[in-house]
Nucleic acid binder design. Structure first.
Lengths: 239, 239
DNA sequence: AAGTGGTCTAGACCACATT
DNA sequence: ATGTGGTCTAGACCACTTC
């Protein structure tokens, strides 16, 4: 186990279980590095990761302090994970998909631009409605280059595509560039998502990147408003 | 100027202006550190910041590569800034506020919890409609501890509160924990935001933290859907 | 003046990918 | 076997805050 990860986990636990409380001043980097028997740089890396996770703040010249987090923020922190595919977010629920379209096509100019490919390349076009315990909650339109995501089959898209990519293809997903907007639902969406006319929807447009740097996914998903939520931590300029 | 910031800016510019192109393999950390005349650790810090900004990706054992960004992503990157108050986002537009309420009260249990204060503390309660060029686009309900944000006056809340906090009070805003949801507008919102009945709204609920670690703001803002957009980069586990 | 976190170094060793 | 990025060190010096 990497030392800075071990220290990170240890200190995160101490914040969550109350060993360190809100606004408490922590021992100095020097003291902590002696306590954990690591160099100052390693200690700093552990602490910087805690800052990134929103658990502590550092004040140059003054010290390191536990953030003034409310109780429910702490609970959220203790189970926080960055993005996951829908299947992973609801592990004990039954997530299924209704496939509206699944084909291989040439990309439109928009898709070419988003995925940085040419008109001669092929992409999967996937249109599906995802359901939790048979309740529809999101309509997805996804485009993925065939050259990257080989041998995608109907059985995969009925389950989790992210799972297929990460487990079977052994690719790593590195990051997602995401945009969220809001609008009224269309009649087709009302019908597919089993909503009432006039209900709003949350729109997530995103480009996904693999750890090899390639854009592997451009998708637009339309969420039932009552199942939609997006949480994030924004920081003021780290650089 | 810090060396790693200088290198970060230099390389970012080279990606934006096309000196380095999509998917190109960059020189190794060793070569780059020789070129910039810095140690490997400093070079690594510059590169890690570029990774955080979503411009490059690193592959252990293989090299560092420019991300496969589309043209419009690159444009976005070249002017990207993390969060700003609304006034800062629209510098050439006229941003004004209609104050619906501005008072000092004792916090409700919810506010106590979010701001980590007690029932005896006082908070400002601010309810305002913000407008761009006289067009309303968001209703904000904000609570801020009086003990932190001293001497807040009506003239400040008519302008930008973030500006007051950062310029006059000389506080630094460190981070914001934000949640986005969607719902239908109420009749009151339709009226205040000059919308049509049945229009949806985007809801942003957030807690803001100063660089001294204190929670200084709990706010719920209700956005006209056609003026609302939220962009972000999500990364898979840095730690 | 003393203590804090921030930057930077020169080098060691490790884990992983490619050849 | 070679080259890549990742971790870690021991220590120097700097910038800032507090006393």
């Amino acid at each position: 186990m990497k030392k800075y990860v071990h220290i990170f986990n240890d200190m995160k636990n101490k914040i969550i279980d109350g060993t360190y409380v809100s606004n408490q001043k922590l021992p100095s980097e020097k003291q902590l590095s002696e306590h954990y028997q690591v160099s100052k740089m390693t200690m700093k890396q552990a602490l910087d990761n805690l800052v990134d996770d929103g658990l502590i703040i550092k004040k140059r010249g003054s010290g390191t302090f536990v953030k003034d987090l409310s109780a429910d923020e702490l609970v959220r922190m203790s189970l926080t994970n960055q993005f996951r595919g829908k299947t992973a977010e609801y592990p004990q629920e039954k997530v299924t998909s209704k496939i509206l379209a699944f084909s291989v096509i040439n990309p439109s100019p928009l898709i070419q631009q988003k995925l940085n490919i040419s008109a001669e390349d092929f992409v999967y076009f996937l249109h599906r409605v995802r359901k939790i315990n048979d309740q529809p909650f999101v309509i997805e339109e996804t485009h993925m280059p065939v050259s990257l995501i080989r041998d995608l089959k109907r059985s995969h898209v009925e389950q989790s595509i992210y799972e297929y990519i990460e487990t079977e293809l052994q690719y790593k997903i590195q990051s997602v560039h995401r945009k969220i907007t809001v609008r009224q639902s269309t009649a087709a969406e009302v019908s597919e998502l089993d909503m009432t006319e006039g209900d709003p929807v949350g729109i997530v447009e995103q480009v996904g990147y693999l750890s090899n740097g390639a854009a592997f996914e451009y998708s637009i998903s339309t969420h039932r408003y009552d199942r939609f939520k997006s949480e994030m931590i924004l920081k003021r300029e780290s650089v």
